[in-house]
Amino acid sequence: MAIFVDQNTKVIVQGLTGGQGKYHGLRNRAYGTQVVGGVTPGKGGLDVEGIPVFDSVADAVAATGADASFIAVPPKAASAAILEAAAAGVRFVVCITEGIPAQDEARVYNTLLRDFPGTRLLGPNCPGIISPGKCNIGITAGEIAELPSASGPNVGIVSRSGTLTYQALYELKQRGIGVSTCVGIGGDPVPGTNFIDCLSQFQADPETHAIIMIGEIGGSAEEEAAEFIKANVTKPMSAYIAGVTAPAGKKMGHAGAIVSGGKGTAQGKMDALAAAGVRIGLNPTEAGDLMAEIVASLR
């Protein structure tokens, strides 16, 4: 088991003929992911190293039976690409595009909610998702993800930051701790999938025994997750929140990472999570150490 994606997931890459789409799409395939097609309007009929390219998502889905999409197109085209995938019935859409206007993101989020409840969007501005050994969609370097062990215990990862997601995978790999699924939800103000969506899946997933959560300053997603954890999550957790030293009022790289009006601070988030029983690391390595302790206690 894994969450959201597994060995049966069939993926198309929207933007497969572009630089990013080609590089990561081929890497995903090399990892073992079923990359069954690509979409670039006007380039239908071509192929990228044996992966057939279609003019539209609908064509690609009809021909390949794909149920997931990996979107690697520029910000101007990303909103339309997400909605095209949803309209074509794609169940799981991963959008790595950084720099989509917040107004567009909010509109896409609410359009999906209203018109395409069967489609889950991961991202935008996210590294993607990996269920080690089964499926890797996005930009994660698959070799740093430890395979889950059949006997467990395995850890689920959910993170707002790309490189900190890799850091978490790496911390676990160095300790030989298996990962069920690692989800990067992205650093934008309106992510399609949030912490709670992932936590509830991990809680229900029999292959996941503990959870690492990586948050950062800005917004209140971590505080909302803390409330959810208190009420619903029985699996042990460790967490790390980036941005303790971030100055107020500055967007720290991610569009969503800003402390404004004294709200969204790292300390507030750590306090909320600690109150929900989550063990808090003061840096990614410490969160990894805490998880190692948790896993040892489960073995």
């Binding site: 850091q167 950062e216 980036a242």
Partner: peptide
């Protein structure tokens, strides 16, 4: 590389 890692680097330097 990456906003999260950059923020985290600031934090670790501080620690």
């Amino acid at each position: 590389n990456g906003a999260g890692l950059a923020m985290s680097t600031l934090d670790v330097v501080n620690q």
